[in-house]
Design a protein around this nucleic acid. Structure first.
Lengths: 230, 230
DNA sequence: CGGACACTTCGACTAGCATCGAACTATGAA
DNA sequence: TTCATAGTTCGATGCTAGTCGAAGTGTCCG
């Protein structure tokens, strides 16, 4: 019975505190570097690297190189679901209760994903831009000329973005919505504009709070569908 | 960061091969004695006792004394759901799937998941019920009036189910099919009917074996799609 | 280039824990 | 009461795996 049920190996993988810390740090769907995950887990870099290699080998994580960084994200929303289910179980063990306050709802509505907008609002943003023909493509996103004109008009330095090494557009799978939102340099620039215009502000944590006026302005600029009233 | 996220402790609990063996042995919802579980896990009695005490302390199991025996069962269908979800994750890890005997095939066709039907047949059941409009919803399932009438007609005491504390409908992610099947009180009641009607019987282990006549009756009651001929 | 940074690999150490045998408790049967 | 069975507790043992420092590899930047 040494082989045991398959379930044991994956559960043991999640069961180490350091790895569990890393996984929970990744639960919001962002990709983090090895260093960031090491800090999140409270271990040194070599230790984190070893853990991440194992999680990757088990296909719980997806790795992506970017220059000298290595970004890890949850392989799949399915992984996040299982982690959430485990949290549910953990609650009934009599351990400390996890607050499920309004902050959680806010997090799903709009949050920062690295440096761009995620959550319900972020997914709606990409969908709206695509529908208006300002961004094209499915997995590989591109900006057609009319879209480029729109973004320039919106106050974004497209010249600058295009010169930089970072990809202008990037899809990013949204953990709470299970659909893609807009990442990349353009995604970051858009969020910058929102914040600079005062349409939204960063709350402590990852929450992005849009004001009523900000939502109105958003609708004005991008169309009604981005933030349906009610 | 020593305490780590709550998730780690419960995952570590499941992550030990001996404990995982015990938990999977209990996945059919029956209660087993310490000795039986020790044998299922392939460890001695003292070892099993110690493991069970820990699982019990974490409220993953419920214990019940009966004379000089002590019976353990899963504390809750929710525990079974999480275990199934973990099996699903384990599948994609490409982990060792050594034993692929005929029994494994039967297990994928139809098995018991705590107290309701899982496997190919269970997934087909839920899909068929949804298509016929007898169950509605995606993650949160509900029973519309026409569905309720159907189940009452099928011999299920919907009044009783609705009064009880247990949710009537619950999705449960199927590890072999990677789609949801029907859990909750209604899922359990349906399986009860199938067994009572003699359409299927419980084989040793978790296998549910449908007879030829049983499959015909199933098609009659729920539609062709639930068990396509061939 | 050369230096800084991000990460990986290696080797050694250590702590935790799963395991078992033996002794102990409790229940049931004769 | 006495014996048998079921389970628990305890102490000792051995192995796994998590941890870190140091050294190695690759990438970016000036």
């Amino acid at each position: 019975m040494k082989e045991g049920p398959v379930i044991a190996s994956v559960a043991a993988l999640i069961g180490d505190p350091a790895r569990a810390n890393m996984l929970t740090a990744l639960m919001d769907g962002r990709a983090l570097t090895v260093s960031e995950l090491a800090e999140a887990a409270g271990v040194t870099l070599p230790t984190a690297s070893s853990h991440l290699a194992r999680l990757d080998a088990a296909n719980l994580l997806a790795a992506e190189r970017q220059g000298r960084h290595r970004y890890f994200r949850l392989a799949d929303p399915e992984v996040a679901r299982v982690l959430e289910a485990l949290m549910g179980l953990a609650e009934r063990t009599g351990a400390k209760r996890v607050r499920t306050g309004p902050r959680d709802a806010e997090l799903r509505t709009a949050r920062i994903c690295y440096d761009h907008l995620a959550g319900e609002r972020g997914v709606a943003l990409l969908a709206t831009l695509k529908r208006a023909g300002r961004i094209a493509g499915e997995d590989e996103l591109t900006v057609p000329p009319e879209g480029r004109a729109f973004f320039v008009d919106f106050g974004i330095d497209m010249d600058g973005l295009e010169k930089a090494r970072r990809p202008v557009c990037k899809t990013c799978l949204d953990w709470s919505e299970r659909r893609s939102h807009l990442g990349g340099a353009l995604g970051a620039a858009l969020l910058d504009r929102f914040l600079a215009e005062g349409w939204a502000r960063r709350d402590p944590g990852r929450v992005i709070a849009f004001s009523g006026a900000g939502l109105g302005a958003l609708r004005n600029a991008f169309g009604e569908a981005i933030a349906p009233a009610g």
